[in-house]
Amino acid sequence: MTGGAEAAPALPSLDGWRVGVIGFGLMGRPMARALAAAGAEVIVHARRASVRDIAAADGLETADSPAAVARTADVVLVIVSDTPAVESVVAGSGGLLGAVRPGHLVIDMGTTAVATTRALAARVAGAGADYVDAPVSGGQVGAEQATLSIMAGGTEAAIARARPVFQVLGTRLTHVGDVGAGQVAKAANQVVVGLTIGAVAEALTLARRAGVDPGRVRDALAGGFAESRVLAMHGRRMVEGAFTPGARATTQRKDLDQALALAEAVGVTLPATTLARDLYDRLIARGEGDLDHAALIRVLDDRVGPGR
């Protein structure tokens, strides 16, 4: 039965599992480490040899292509930056489709366009393998602490196979529906996150420009209806001007644009999301797209953070 959220029980052992991890960035590296700590043999592929060297230094096995990962791992996690990267990993030269076989489980844990997710899943299913889309929320901190919230799409059987992996990586799993449903949920998540970051940025900028300490305003809002994780975590970043990325502004912009494309496909207008996307465009045009997405406040108030 889909639709229910599950709080994760005690962590399972992954002894005897061979798990591939494709992508070894802000999210992939801590997730690979968590899987290894649970007992899995982890095989990592990253496009750059220098990144594969980092994985080897972490004590993980490496492979020079996605297909090479699939030849030795029964479960393959894809944790890459965007939809074209997922397409390349699955269907490109040296991609998973060159090596997947019946019994394989491919899990896309990035944020990927819904139509592309369903098309890739069909191709993987044509090779006899299972495909789950399982984007996450919680950012780098959630990956490092293994407290991610996972929203999954796929068959009941595929989700059951993936569940031990999810229990290692996160504390909340929701089986949203069939393949693609996880990505729909993530699009909704990113709309809420993106708009809330914008709201917090405007509120704290208003406080600062009105001559009131924005840190104290943030404290005053805690516990009321304005309280949220974005206010707590990203509000602190904004107050302190600390924008080392947990999730990059370029990624947030990409996710909002993807949500807008989905909205257009289903005949929905999202005017506030369009504005938020455009504000991120302004931040990126300033050359600050690699900062944390909380740096959106710098579009409104140049006195915050880098370059003050």
Rank of each mutant, 00 (worst) to 15 (best):
M1T: 13
T2K: 13
G4Q: 15
A5K: 13
E6W: 11
A7P: 02
A7C: 02
A7I: 12
A7Y: 09
A8N: 01
S13E: 00
D15L: 11
G16Y: 09
I22C: 13
F24Q: 01
G28Y: 03
R33L: 15
A38D: 12
G39A: 11
I43R: 10
A46Q: 10
V51Q: 10
R52F: 09
I54T: 15
D58A: 11
L60R: 10
A63E: 03
P66Q: 03
P66E: 06
L77V: 14
V78C: 08
V78K: 01
E87K: 14
S88V: 09
S88W: 08
V90Y: 02
G92R: 14
G95S: 09
L96Q: 10
L96G: 03
G98V: 05
G103V: 01
L105D: 00
T112V: 11
A113W: 07
T116E: 13
A119G: 08
A121H: 00
V124G: 02
V124P: 01
A125P: 09
A127P: 00
Y131H: 12
Y131C: 08
Y131T: 12
D133Q: 08
D133H: 05
P135I: 01
P135T: 00
V136G: 13
V136C: 13
S137M: 10
G139I: 08
E144A: 13
E144W: 04
L148E: 10
G153A: 05
G154H: 07
A157T: 15
R161V: 11
A162W: 09
A162E: 11
V165E: 05
V165A: 03
F166S: 04
R172A: 12
T174V: 15
G177A: 07
D178V: 13
G180K: 10
A181N: 05
K186T: 11
A188G: 14
A188S: 13
V191T: 00
V193L: 14
T196G: 02
V200G: 06
A201M: 03
E202F: 01
A203K: 08
L204P: 02
G211F: 10
D213I: 01
R216Y: 09
V217A: 10
V217S: 09
D219K: 06
L221K: 01
E227Q: 11
S228L: 05
S228K: 04
R229C: 00
V230Q: 03
V230C: 08
A232D: 15
R236C: 02
R236S: 15
G241W: 00
F243R: 04
G246S: 09
A247S: 14
Q252Y: 07
K254P: 00
Q258E: 11
Q258H: 05
A259N: 07
L260V: 06
L262P: 00
A263M: 05
T269V: 15
L270E: 05
L270F: 07
L270C: 08
A272W: 08
L275R: 14
A276R: 04
D278H: 06
L279R: 14
L283D: 02
I284M: 08
R286A: 15
A295E: 05
V299I: 12
D302L: 12
G305S: 00
